[in-house]
Structure formats: structure tokens, C-alpha cells
């Protein structure tokens, strides 16, 4: 680490750091521990551990359905978001044009608009359009709210890239499309893939907006979990959550391999 004139960590710092890390990690660790309990209520697994609450998920069809809905929703939304974000990122990174800043602001706006407001807006919109309960409609709005994530990572990849390779391809006889497909796309693929994974995670995790528009047929896992926890916290909620934690960690490893986790988390270019 480069010294920034901040000195080094003393005992006080290390104590603070330990407590801080504990504060961050504790609730997640607790969920994982509780999920292994063999009791019928929330408790630590120290007096008897089991996998019974994992098996119990299989007997909760509303959670299983919600899981698959979330998976398909995430896949569809992330794919659609990447499909629209990649050309937009090329426009923003490669051209200077009137309205460029406005375009950027528009595409990043879902980060600023409270998701409750989006939920309300989509609820109204769907009911006006008669789209209530449509999986496709839900996927479209999920795509919309994850576009900023796909855009940011793609943009980061393109901006870091020297334009000469594309120009060279053009002058060697490649059309715009060939130059994109054979030169630019392969070179920005890690960023695009990272943006896709991050978009998938964001779509999979989204609850605040979705809770407004979800119908029994389009209830996602976080929404199902939300409703269940709002009623009671039983060990099944813990085992489902534990799976989500582990799954996210798996995706984080992939993200780290593909683009570097620091790029995703810190938004580094």
C-alpha cells in the first residue's frame, strides 16, 4: 500500500477495526449459524446441528417457485440491460454529441430515484397498460433498473481502451460492425460480462420496487422472503438466506476472476 501520510495502525486502530468488521459480518454469520439449527425455532446450532431447514425449503413450494422466478428474471433482465447498455456505452465513450450528458444522466437515474417511487410508478403503469402479473413486464422494468450497473462497467472497459485498434481494423478493411464484433467486443468482454453478473445480482436482490408489482405468479425470492419474515422469522428464512449469501459469494468470486472485484465494488476504471 502506498503511504499516504496517514501513519500506521496502532492498537486502538486494530481494536476499532476488529469491532467494525464484527459489526459488518455478524448478522450474516448469525444467519448461517441459525440455518444449521435442529430446533423448530430460531436458535444457535451449538446444541444440535442439522440440515433439516435446508430440506424444508424443498417443501416450501412458494419459495422454490420464487427462486426460479428470480433466476429467470435476473437472467433476462441482465441480458436485456447489457444489450441496451453496450451500444449506449459506445456512444457515450466514443462520440461527443449534444445531449451526451443528458443521456448519461437519464441512464443512471434509476440509481437516484427511490425504488419505492419506481415501484409505485410501475404499479400504476402496469395497471393502466393491463400488464399486471406479466413476467415479461417485470423483466423489462428490472432491466431498466439494472442498466446503470451494466452501463458503468461497460463504460469503464471502453474508456480504458485505446481507440487505435478499432481504427486499424477499419483501415484493414473491416466494416463498423466487423470492427465491433472482432475487435471492440472481445476487448471489452470482461467489462460487459462483469456488468452482466452485477446486473444479475442487482435484479436478483431487488425487493423494494418488486414488492409493489409482484403478483402471486411473479413473486421473486426476496419478495417471498420479505413477506415471510414480515410474518415470522423461522429457520427456513435463515436457510434460504444462507443459500443466498453463499450464492452471492460464488458470484463475487466469478466477478473477481472476470473484472476484479475492486472494479465492481469501488467503481474503479
Amino acid at each position: 500500500m502506498k503511504d499516504r501520510g496517514l501513519g500506521s495502525n496502532g492498537v486502538g486502530s486494530l481494536i476499532f477495526h476488529t469491532l467494525f468488521t464484527l459489526f459488518i459480518v455478524a448478522p450474516l454469520a448469525v444467519i448461517i449459524l441459525v440455518s444449521f439449527s435442529d430446533k423448530g425455532y430460531i436458535s444457535m446450532p451449538f446444541e444440535g446441528a442439522s440440515l433439516r431447514w435446508y430440506w424444508a425449503i424443498l417443501d416450501a413450494p412458494e419459495l422454490m417457485n420464487a427462486f426460479w422466478i428470480s433466476i429467470w428474471l435476473g437472467l433476462g433482465a441482465a441480458t436485456l440491460a447489457s444489450l441496451v447498455a453496450v451500444p449506449a456505452a459506445i456512444a457515450i465513450a466514443r462520440y461527443r454529441f449534444a445531449g451526451r450528458d443528458g443521456l448519461m444522466a437519464l441512464l443512471l437515474s434509476p440509481l437516484m430515484i427511490p425504488h419505492v417511487v419506481l415501484g409505485v410508478a410501475f404499479l400504476r403503469f402496469f395497471s393502466v397498460m393491463g400488464w399486471t402479473g406479466s413476467f415479461l413486464a417485470l423483466m423489462l422494468v428490472h432491466a431498466l433498473i439494472v442498466v446503470p450497473f451494466a452501463l458503468r462497467l461497460t463504460l469503464g472497459a471502453i474508456i480504458g481502451l485505446n481507440r487505435d485498434a478499432e481504427l486499424a481494423a477499419r483501415s484493414l478493411g473491416a466494416s463498423r460492425w466487423i470492427a465491433f464484433r472482432r475487435i471492440l467486443l472481445p476487448l471489452i468482454l470482461p467489462g460487459v460480462a462483469g456488468g452482466w453478473v452485477l446486473s444479475f445480482i442487482q435484479s436478483f436482490d431487488e425487493v423494494t420496487m418488486t414488492v409493489f408489482v409482484a403478483t402471486p405468479g411473479t413473486t421473486t425470492l426476496p419478495v417471498a422472503l420479505y413477506h415471510r419474515v414480515a410474518m415470522l422469522t423461522d429457520p427456513v428464512t435463515a436457510s434460504v438466506s444462507a443459500i443466498m449469501i453463499v450464492g452471492t459469494m460464488g458470484l463475487m468470486v466469478i466477478l473477481d476472476r472476470v473484472v476484479g472485484i475492486d472494479k465492481v465494488l469501488l467503481g474503479k476504471k
Binding site: 459488518i24 436478483f204 436482490d205 422472503l225 419474515v229 422469522t233 438466506s241 449469501i245 452471492t248 458470484l251
Partner: peptide, 18 residues
């Protein structure tokens, strides 16, 4: 970094449940 920032990627419902 991963320990402190990683939870960002975990559903807020899960974190709240914890």
C-alpha cells in the same frame, strides 16, 4: 475490502433478517 463491501451485493432482506 471484500468483507466490508461484499455485503453490498447481498440482498437487503437477508441482511435485515440477520
Amino acid at each position: 475490502f471484500v468483507m466490508i463491501l461484499g455485503p453490498l451485493l447481498i440482498s437487503v432482506v437477508v441482511r435485515t433478517l440477520g
